[in-house]
């Protein structure tokens, strides 16, 4: 593949994949430490009815309408989970399970009832995404990166994903100390006067933002994997949270690039035609990284954790 072809066909999907991976991995670090790892999974499921409703109301299955629908659905889900948990006094895992399966079922039903096949909105597409199709038609080579006309035709998912990534990184930087404190020792953080409930909600909102924007660009499976696998692998590498975040970003980026390339060129290596699902391959690659970390990570064992745990920065 020459330079022009690469820029046109692969550059944007690669960048979007990496940015989606990083955007999800960042809040994922806090989710796995707070034992909320499955929130990402839940959000990625409830987004479906939101998108279908947005489509039924606006007739569009892309851009702002879709984002608004997804965000609305995530909000409804959070409220419903809280309601079920409070009213029913049911443990959070089960409350989440009740709400996200019911909402996903509703989404599928709405999808089947509406005639949305014309706009390429179906369940499989929602799960797998279509990373491969996010190409940059107007690019003619590396020089297009500096060409405003070509840049204007860039697929909107890329700048959107980049903005979310930047926003999340800045938020983490800005609120680092309260985030770390309330994650490792909520009681102590509350004693120091930090609003721990607001911080907890803030982490869920960050995860929801990452999931919703990534879902729009790359489908459900990449966010679900990236919330957990890179941060999980990173957690087995180090005891310091700052270093863990850096590891998770690196793992996420490597998984996105390697997965994308494997999906495109892997089949040819073993003598098959065509390519396989990039989203699926990226999830598998992140799983391989986690598997390696489970086998060889220097901090993999329970005994390796220092007593009390260090809330390092």
């Amino acid at each position: 593949m020459n330079g022009a072809e690469f820029v046109q066909l692969s550059l944007t999907p690669l960048l979007i994949g990496v940015l989606a991976a990083v955007a999800c991995a960042l809040p994922g670090n806090f989710l796995i430490l707070r034992r909320q790892a499955l929130i990402g999974d839940a959000i990625s499921h409830v987004v479906l009815p939101g998108i279908v409703v947005a489509f039924l109301l606006s007739g569009q299955a892309t851009g702002p309408a879709m984002l608004a629908g997804a965000a609305g659905a995530a909000l409804v889900a959070v409220v419903l989970i809280e309601l079920v948990r409070r009213l029913g006094r049911i443990e959070p895992g089960a409350a989440m399970g009740v709400v996200f399966t019911a909402m996903f079922a509703l989404g599928v039903l709405l999808l089947e009832q509406s005639d949305s096949s014309a706009v390429h909105l179906d369940v499989e597409h929602a799960l797998m995404g279509n990373l491969e199709s996010l190409i940059w038609f107007d690019a003619e080579g590396w020089h297009s990166v500096a060409d405003p006309v070509a840049l204007a035709a860039l697929t909107p998912e890329l700048p959107r994903m980049a903005a979310v990534c930047l926003l999340l990184a800045l938020t983490l930087r800005l609120f680092w100390r309260p985030l770390v404190l309330s994650t490792f020792d909520e009681g102590f953080a509350a004693g120091q006067g930090y609003p721990v409930r607001v911080i907890g909600l803030g982490i869920v909102v960050m995860a929801a933002l990452a999931a919703v924007v990534a879902f729009d660009a790359v489908g459900a499976i990449i966010p679900i994997a990236m919330f957990i696998c890179p941060p999980g692998a990173a957690r087995l590498m180090t005891d310091r949270l700052g270093a863990q975040l850096a590891w998770s970003v690196a793992f996420g980026a490597v998984a996105a690039v390697a997965g994308y390339l494997l999906a495109g060129h892997g089949p040819a290596l073993i003598g098959l035609d065509g390519s396989v699902s990039a989203a699926g391959m990226i999830a598998v690659t992140s799983g391989l990284i986690l598997g390696l970390a489970c086998l060889f990570g220097p901090r993999r064992g329970r005994a390796a954790a220092p007593p009390g745990g260090r809330a390092g920065a």
């Binding site: 499955l38 989203a279 999830a283």
Partner: peptide
């Protein structure tokens, strides 16, 4: 075997196996 909690293990297995299935 590792210090990851069960919910993280569930999420990891779920997404990776499902990804492999999509492939």
């Amino acid at each position: 075997r590792t210090r990851l909690t069960e919910d993280a293990a569930i999420g990891a297995a779920l997404s990776v196996f499902f990804g492999a299935g999509l492939v």
